[in-house]
């Protein structure tokens, strides 16, 4: 049996074009940044030697490291808690299904975006400049930045609550807060907890680093030891940090598994 119709022309695939453009772009960037292939290779060799010096960690100051670690965790805890409180208060207004009017919705959304946009390290810098060294600027920086993320996650969860539930609450004469407590939060609690744990996990990681800008915790110590070329102490610090981060990571994954 012969084919009566000719096959339609095969559509042009744009993939090769995009790919070549991308490669060209990357090349241009590499040139612009004055990246030198040779320097990279030498650099890698240097790095190998450099990292070898971290081979023998010195745990002599362990007790003070552990204290700093506790402080780091405390920064993460309070940063996350404040972020949670702010997010809980702002999120309903940033959810288009619940927000009282278009203006509050836009304002709340923009506020959350603004809080998210600034990298928390930069915020920490700003807060340190304003408030001086110490853990407080770290807490505030984390709180502001992650409130933006958490608020957006919550608002998106709220928008996925079936609209019928809002109608039911309206029909019994429930107020705004009552609708939140009985229809909205029960529907999204699982997701909300998962998101909060994710943010806390991330904040532990960030709190460790915030010390680099003077915002307290173990990062500050690492900065000093590296500056002083104390590799043995640095590697001990890094190990302590890594173990803690991994531990919190596992813990929060476990909790999240138990919830689903």
């Amino acid at each position: 049996m012969s084919i009566d119709q000719a096959l339609p022309a095969k559509p042009r695939s744009w993939l090769p074009l995009w790919l070549s453009l991308l490669l060209a772009l990357l090349y241009v960037i590499a040139v612009d940044l004055e990246l030198d292939g040779e320097a990279l290779l030498y650099g890698l060799e240097d790095m190998a030697g450099y990292f070898a010096r971290f081979g023998s960690p010195d745990f002599s100051n362990l007790s003070s490291y552990l204290q700093l670690l506790a402080q780091t965790l405390a920064i993460a805890v309070w940063g996350s808690v404040l972020a949670l409180i702010a997010a809980v208060m702002i999120a309903p207004f940033a959810a288009i299904t619940i927000s009282p009017n278009a203006l509050t919705y836009r304002l709340a959304r923009e506020l959350l975006n603004f809080m998210r946009a600034m990298p928390d390290l930069l915020l920490a810098l700003l807060f340190v400049a304003a408030l001086g060294l110490g853990p407080m600027p770290g807490v505030l920086a984390l709180a502001v930045h992650t409130a933006g993320f958490l608020g957006k996650f919550f608002a998106e969860s709220m928008e996925r609550v079936p609209a019928g539930r809002y109608e039911a609450m309206a029909s019994v004469g429930a107020g705004f807060t009552q609708t939140l407590i009985f229809a909205v939060w029960p529907s999204m609690l699982r997701e909300a907890i998962g998101n909060t744990l994710y943010i806390f996990d991330r904040n532990v990681r960030m709190a460790a680093v915030l010390g680099l800008v003077g915002a307290g915790g173990i990062g500050l110590e690492l900065h000093d030891t590296l500056r002083l070329f104390r590799y043995d102490q640095s590697s001990a610090l890094i190990m302590v940090m890594l173990i803690t981060i991994i531990a919190i990571d596992q813990l929060s994954t476990w909790i999240r598994k138990k919830l689903t």
Binding site: G43, D46, M47, Y50, F51, L121, R205, M206, A208, V209, L212, G219, L222, H223, L226, I238, M241, L242, I245, I246, D249
Partner: peptide, 16 residues
């Protein structure tokens, strides 16, 4: 994933 990016950057700067 456990490595904080700033720490890694710090290390690379010290090396390179």
């Amino acid at each position: 994933r456990a490595l904080p990016d700033m720490v890694v950057a710090l290390l690379f700067v010290s090396a390179l």
